[in-house]
Design a protein around this nucleic acid. Sequence first.
DNA 1: GTAGTCATGTAAGAGGTTACATGATTAG
DNA 2: CTAATCATGTAACCTCTTACATGACTAC
Lengths: 201, 201
Amino acid sequence: MSLRHAMLALLTAEPMTGYDIAEHFNEAVAFLWAAPHSQIYPELRRMETEGLVQAEEVLRGGRATKRRYSISDEGRAALERWMTDSEGYPAERNAHRLKAAYFELTDFSVAREHLAAHIRHYNRRLDQWRETAEAIRSRRHPLLLLRLEKAPPELHDVIVAYKALAFDGEAARARAEIEWAQRGIELVDELEAKQKVNTQA
Amino acid sequence: MSLRHAMLALLTAEPMTGYDIAEHFNEAVAFLWAAPHSQIYPELRRMETEGLVQAEEVLRGGRATKRRYSISDEGRAALERWMTDSEGYPAERNAHRLKAAYFELTDFSVAREHLAAHIRHYNRRLDQWRETAEAIRSRRHPLLLLRLEKAPPELHDVIVAYKALAFDGEAARARAEIEWAQRGIELVDELEAKQKVNTQA
DNA sequence: GTAGTCATGTAAGAGGTTACATGATTAG
DNA sequence: CTAATCATGTAACCTCTTACATGACTAC
């Protein structure tokens, strides 16, 4: 049920089309939730029939129109209810860690390459998240600015601080993954060195 | 497709029933993959028809039987293929982080309680993972001992090291989450203090 | 005109959750 | 005998992924 709350939360910044939401949800903008457009459009329709959002047909060019969605009072209430609900934790399911646990089934070089890919992946993520946190703290982040325009000034610091906190969390996770994979590579090196000594002896 | 590889990996230690696998996959034993029995039993049947595992009917008590599954050579080959495949990374989807990003929509006390729950959750996980890593390194972990019995002695150190590495990774992640939530609580305290000063002025 | 972007959908299928359902075995 | 554990299933439902599909608009 988080998809709809992620969308409602986005819509508190400004009215958007499904396309806009999809953009914010995808790698390019690196947000805290991801979803393909095939999930977004039907969900917006459902939220509309449930009264959480209102759609408005907006002209684009001469002939075509697009549907711009705004959050309704009911939607805001749903968001606030969600805020007070406690979230459960999903079951542990980490394919990369699982694979690492069985690296003995493959070559040292393959293990090393998996760990190197892990580092590359989380380095990319770390850059994105650090940049986003920085853009938020320095109040350059476009969506944040739109959000602040509508919020009372005494809330600005709080809004900025919480957004930055969230991205800091993702950055911290990325750093932990990078350090782990680096220790992993060192371990693979040691194990390989030890094996070479033993086979020579 | 990781469910079947997690099961194949487990079955390299020793033959097991679906019930045994479910136990290893659940909180009690705190493994790296989780799945309910409703997923395990049908998947074992599919893996059997595909030749990845072999079932053997074993008596239990007088009347009843249970099905004990062993990994086949084909299953081992599938596992080794999976080891060389590179894993993709799932889309980012973190409900707790998302909620934290919008804490301004609720009271400081609610925000604090969410973060405290986060700390409690990852502290429990950290204990489990640290204990498991310790049990592995000191070669007290029952499943590991069964696995070592079947493995050539020169591989023992490697097997132990990779298993411990995986649990270390989960522990590192848990530590990162705890530190993040602690910084979050400090932030909430600061924001609340600032707000009090402002409303008094 | 044509390529890239904007915009919105549908549908099949995989993977996972929750609930329903059953019955034997074992320890007290 | 009775409760807990062992053991195995099915089914409805939800979420997400991947692919298929279409068409208008904009910049060149």
